[in-house]
């Protein structure tokens, strides 16, 4: 397997950055890790998860769609899309890599979202296997193997060595391009690490959660009508924390920004189904209560999305909502209350 010594990592990054843009998790001021454009001196953070997911690279938190200009009776639509430079995201965990598939199902299905696709086409994902999963992780529940993540290139960090294995054509080409960086070594340490990690995963508290009953059409209404929603959501404050840290939340809002010189920037930004103005109808808002909005979010991830997408759940078990929710309500508590647990 292709390897690289940890001591050569910065050199490797510098080389990538010469040809592409490189993004990787770096420890921020608070000691947590965040994705950041690499600059000389930045150290790759081996922290398990970044506060925000990696979805921002493809589904931008805010982006300009196009400009509109009105001059008397004339309206002009100005395409503001720009060519995107090739970029590399290094160190994406298995759960976040899987979230790209979930977003693909939305944004690459007809009609293809060109903004998303443009970035997807230009981005290369180097994933990183987990070796120290947290007790709040439950990716195994969604058939994700944290020890062997997907991506264009999968990588492992065992002691002071990094191991790389390209999985796609894009990954092959990349490895070929940077081949002088790597040496070829035996992959035994990787196998050993995988085994150890799988051993830990088996002992995680949520490993035995049961997803039976979700994601099937005939249970849709039964789950929808469950009385538990009321109690679970009773103290939901309706903020958007879970939505914005979630790697699979995909909703957005489209708005106009008035530049002031007669032109408008029409942009889209992340939106949250937790907000009271998210769904609106002329006659009445169909989701007037926080309970209804709370239910919508979890129904979407656990029931609606899988019905539409061949049983794939809209959750990857990254555990971010378990850490970030201001009132400690999260998808695990919902799964436990609603499923056959």
């Amino acid at each position: 397997m292709l390897t690289l010594n940890a001591s050569q990592l910065d050199e490797f990054f510098a080389l990538i950055e010469k040809k592409r843009e490189l993004y990787l998790p770096v420890e921020n001021k608070t000691g947590k890790s965040e994705y950041k454009r690499w600059v000389e001196g930045d150290k790759y953070s081996t922290a398990l998860r970044t506060v925000k997911s990696a979805k921002n690279f493809f589904f931008a938190k805010s982006e300009n769609l196009y400009d509109l200009k009105m001059d008397h009776k004339n309206v002009e639509v100005i395409d503001t899309r720009e060519d995107i430079k090739e970029f590399v995201i290094f160190g994406v965990r298995g759960c976040d890599v899987k979230s790209f598939d979930i977003l693909d199902n939305v944004y690459l299905q007809d009609p293809v979202d060109t903004y998303y696709k443009n970035r997807r086409d230009h981005g290369l994902v180097i994933s990183m296997a987990c070796s120290k999963p947290a007790t709040t992780c439950f990716c195994a529940l969604f058939d994700i193997d944290a020890t062997s993540p997907n991506g264009d290139i999968q990588a492992w960090n065992v002691e002071d060595k990094f191991y790389f294995n390209p999985l796609t054509e894009k990954g092959d080409a990349f490895v070929e391009e940077f081949k002088e960086c790597f040496t070829d070594e035996d992959s035994k340490p990787v196998e050993k690490q995988k085994e150890e990690t799988l051993n830990i995963i088996e002992r995680l508290p949520f490993v035995n959660l049961n997803m039976e009953g979700f994601g099937v059409e005939d249970k849709l209404k039964a789950i929808f009508d469950r009385p538990e929603w009321e109690d679970l959501s009773s103290t939901c404050i309706g903020c958007g924390t879970c939505t914005y840290v979630c790697p699979t939340c995909q909703c957005f809002d489209i708005k106009d920004f008035n530049v002031g010189d007669g032109s408008i920037k029409r942009f889209r930004c992340w939106d949250s189904c937790m907000y009271s103005d998210f769904t609106q109808m002329a006659a009445a808002n169909p989701r007037l209560t926080q309970t209804a909005r709370f239910r919508q979010r979890f129904m979407h991830k656990l029931v609606y999305y899988p019905i539409k997408n061949e049983g794939i759940y809209g959750c990857v078990g990254c555990g971010r909502c378990l850490v970030s929710c201001p009132v400690q309500m999260n998808i695990v508590k919902v799964i436990k209350a609603m499923g056959d647990n």
Binding site: V106, D253, M299
Partner: peptide
């Protein structure tokens, strides 16, 4: 049906009812 929509192409999520 009538509902306030934003994207019109089944992506932005706000006119989602069931699946």
């Amino acid at each position: 049906m009538e509902m306030r929509m934003k994207c019109g192409v089944g992506k932005c999520g706000r006119c989602n009812i069931g699946d």
